[in-house]
Amino acid sequence: MNPFRILGDLSHLASILVLIFNIKSTNTIEGISIKTQVLYVLVFLTRYLDLFSFRLVSFYNTIMKLFFISSSIYVVVLLQRSKTTQAVAYKTMLLTDTFKVQYILLGTLIAAFVINHKFTFVEIAWSFSVWLESVAILPQLFMLSKSGKSKSLTVHYIFALGLYRTLYIPNWIWRYHTEGVIDKIALAAGIIQTLVYSDFFYLYYKKVIKRSALNLP
């Protein structure tokens, strides 16, 4: 375990908690793609199947898995609940959240069957999960490119998400030099994810940060 990975995992968890805090405190879901949030739940559920095998890696690893699964499910619950509490915003979300996730699911499923560590259910599910995580933000990216509004996607959320991705690269470098081991599939998916995220951040910067700067009185 190295500081990059711990900080990366904590900022990943922080990004989910910030999103929950934003939804609950501002009581708005504007700009959030429910599809991306559902894909994240799928990422955690398919990746953490080893929780059921009780071959626990470590206490930290187990407790964080439980945190990730529960907090990401809670985000989706909050978004679903806004169907009643803020019906208009919920309808707007469904109207603008139009990315065809079928393509992502099919593509990542094929990738999982072709590229995995071992042709077992758990390993194919794990591989599906890392490929899925690398493209899960696409619905959110397309929604942002269309609407440009994003009250709930605050800079804190974007920063924490970016920090998580960024810190995983030095973590892999550190592990390669200290343990001489590297998970090639996680590395490949992680690089794709970092590229997709940087595209998302560029869009966010253009759409939200520069636009709000223009609106200054």
């Binding site: 990975r5 995992d9 990943h12 990746r47 080893d50 890696v57 470590s58 690893n61 964080m64 898995k65 990730f68 560590h117 071992k118 390993e123 794990w126 973590n171 998970d183 996680a186």
Partner: peptide, 10 residues
């Protein structure tokens, strides 16, 4: 057989 892969990263 290939070693059992242990994923210790989240």
């Amino acid at each position: 057989i290939t070693k059992n892969v242990v994923h210790d990263e989240l």
